[in-house]
Nucleic acid binder design. Structure first.
Length: 231
DNA sequence: GCGACAG
DNA sequence: ATCTTGTCGC
């Protein structure tokens, strides 16, 4: 798939923060007119012990059946450390390669991390959505910033995530009696649509089917490519 | 200075 | 994220 190389990746954490502030100005928090979601995809990465290589994968599902219709994967050397708030600079280089290999364009891409629920409102999902020019959603397993009130135990219960007096996302119970996931819009997306879509692709388990498929793919790819790096 | 901190 | 045994519940 084609994408928009907005910038290079040889950055220091300081430069990365400055870049996020620039990109934030061009983020679009509104879905395209008449967005039709026929294909939803999930992106994820896995890395080896020594944290040298990153294995990325994207799985595209039919939005109706939630069955895979396409997928792609790639591996790249990690070039950026894990710094809370700068996760996209560690994960996106691999996902860019994966995106290039992908031959079916999804209508929406769901990332395993935050969207606008980020200190500078430019989490992994926002950054990735802008790079790929695709509507995107952030669905994380834990909070990076913000707080939320209690939510009901029933599936579908919601609670706004507030940070610095601003609603930046939603805690969403995708399964009865299980911890919620944290949803926030990425790019070309808004919070209500993001929440509705995450619930639609998470009919049975805590995490979206997109994320589950992508997670299994990257772990399999790592298992195959980790042991014996071919000379 | 102290505590928090996606994956 | 990764490492890792046992344990609780449907």
């Amino acid at each position: 798939m084609e994408y928009v190389p907005l910038h290079g990746w040889d950055l220091t954490p300081k430069q990365a923060v400055a870049l996020q502030r620039e990109l934030r100005e061009r983020l679009v928090l509104r879905p395209p007119r008449g967005l039709k979601v026929e294909r939803v995809a999930g992106a994820d990465i896995s890395m080896s012990r020594g944290a040298k290589m990153a294995y990325g994968g994207i799985v595209v599902l039919d939005a109706g059946t939630l069955k895979p219709v396409a997928q792609a994967s790639a591996s790249v050397k990690l070039g950026f450390p894990y710094v809370p708030g700068l996760l996209s600079f560690r994960e996106l280089p691999v996902l860019v390669e994966v995106w290039r290999q992908l031959e079916v364009r999804p209508d929406v891409l769901i990332f395993d991390g935050q969207g606008t629920a980020h200190p500078r409102r430019l989490g992994l999902a926002c950054h990735g959505g802008m790079l790929f020019g695709v509507p995107s959603i952030g669905c994380a397993k834990s909070l990076l910033v913000g707080q939320h009130g209690p939510l009901g135990q029933e599936r579908g219960s919601l609670a706004e995530i507030v940070h610095q007096g601003e609603v930046v996302g939603m805690a969403v119970r995708t399964r009865k009696g299980v911890l919620p996931v944290y949803v926030s819009p990425g790019h070309l997306m808004d919070l209500p649509t993001a929440v509705e879509l995450v619930l639609r692709v998470s009919p049975r388990y805590r995490e979206p089917e997109t994320t589950r498929f992508a997670h299994r793919l990257v772990n399999e790819v790592r298992r195959l490519g980790d042991p014996i790096p071919s000379p």
